[in-house]
Amino acid sequence: MLRAYVPIFLFILVAIGFAVVTLLISRLVHAEKPNAVKLEPYECGIEPETDARDRYSVRYYLVAMLFVIFDVETIFMFPWAVILDRLALFGLIEMALFLFILVVGYFYAWKKGALEWA
């Protein structure tokens, strides 16, 4: 069964090898003439204004947290969907209960304005 993963393993090896070889070759052949502009981080051609290690708004964290929670909720539906034909109505009811509890949280987030950016 693990034999099926040999192509994926090879793919990962080639991907890592490609990155390493590219870096190695460019290190071997490039000219060493650094200056301040060259060493700047490249930001799509725009001059960087501040250090990248700035503090961000906590809203990003909130959005990521809500994403992970609904992500986990969806994950639970995969094994459920695979055997739904055998679980029948019982399975439908238990998933409805599960989703109901999380929809309560969704409405809480909505009413508290956690989904709004302003």
């Binding site: 909130l62 947290m65 929670i69 909720e73 509890i101 999380l102 809480y108 956690a114």
Partner: peptide
């Protein structure tokens, strides 16, 4: 499994309360 949904709900409310 059903308790897990309560856990997720607590996590959600906790994050909102802390971040507001």
């Amino acid at each position: 499994f059903e308790v897990a949904s309560m856990l997720l709900l607590v996590a959600m409310i906790g994050a909102i309360v802390l971040a507001r």
